[in-house]
């Protein structure tokens, strides 16, 4: 665009703006005379409030916060009191925390494990739901008065699980002396006696309706985990 053209364009646009200014001023004067646009404090206030509400940043409600805090506080308080005073609750909590941390229990019956199908043949009232890694069922004996399932790993180590039922007059003699170690635990309300002798671990679990007797000749097995996950079918 040449200098001349630019100059002509400026003259034309200035004329248009002048004309618009005049029109605008006329409109303002007309509006001032119109009673609809006269000053009205009440209406202005309403309009301002509506604007404030529309654009206000919503503040969190204090009441709701206090309620949530009190509920949370009461829960914490209740849980703490229960943890301190109730033995059963402590045990359940400990069990829960143990389960959270221990991923080796992935070989439980719920998983797709080759032991699952084999254990279906087992007719005992209780069943081990945690089978240590590498162990496979190799023998199941179902008798009227006792049931046995045996697991074996590639190294030839064996876990022998037997359930002596209460439907028979039975004397069950346990070796009660000359153990290398002897300890008792209460898990899920069941008394568990753990003894070791010459690198063999013996678990005796007493329930209402059975004596469960488990023997391990593998020290690396989590036998307490095994005992914890013996459950009623």
């Amino acid at each position: 665009m040449t200098e001349y053209n630019k100059h002509i364009l400026k003259i034309v646009t200035d004329d248009i703006l002048d004309e618009n200014d005049e029109l605008f001023l006329k409109e303002i004067e007309a509006a001032k005379a119109d009673p609809r646009f006269a000053n009205n404090k009440e209406r202005d206030e309403k309009f301002r409030k509506a604007l404030d509400e529309a654009f206000a940043v919503k503040k969190p409600r204090r009441k709701a916060l206090v309620r949530a805090a009190s509920v949370f506080l009461a829960l914490i308080l209740g849980l703490s009191v229960m943890t301190i005073t109730v033995k059963g609750f402590r045990e359940k909590l400990w069990e829960f925390l143990n389960n959270l941390g221990n991923h080796s229990y992935s070989s439980m019956l719920s998983s797709k494990n080759s032991n699952d199908n084999k254990l279906l043949e087992y007719e005992g009232m209780y069943i081990p739901k945690y089978i240590p890694e590498g162990y496979e069922v190799f023998k199941i004996v179902n008798e009227e008065t006792y049931n046995t399932v045996k697991f074996r790993n590639l190294a030839g180590n064996i876990i022998s699980y037997t359930e002596h039922t209460q439907n028979v007059e039975k004397k069950f003699n346990l070796d009660k002396e000359a153990y290398d170690s002897y300890e008792t635990h209460t898990i899920k309300g069941k008394e568990i006696i753990i003894t070791t002798k010459e690198n063999v671990i013996y678990l005796t679990i007493k329930t209402n309706d059975a004596i469960i007797y488990v023997i391990f000749n593998d020290n690396n097995v989590d036998f307490l985990g095994f005992a914890t996950h013996i459950e009623k079918k």
Binding site: T145, Y146, H164, Q166, V168, E169, K170, K171, F172, N173, L174, D175, K176, E177, A178, K197, V200, Y202, I211, Y213, I215
Partner: peptide, 19 residues
């Protein structure tokens, strides 16, 4: 469940039962 004998002492055995 039963009247277990008083403290049997086994060398190799873990338990013995009779029903």
């Amino acid at each position: 469940m039963s009247d277990s004998e008083a403290s049997p002492r086994y060398t190799h055995l873990g338990a013995v039962s009779a029903g």
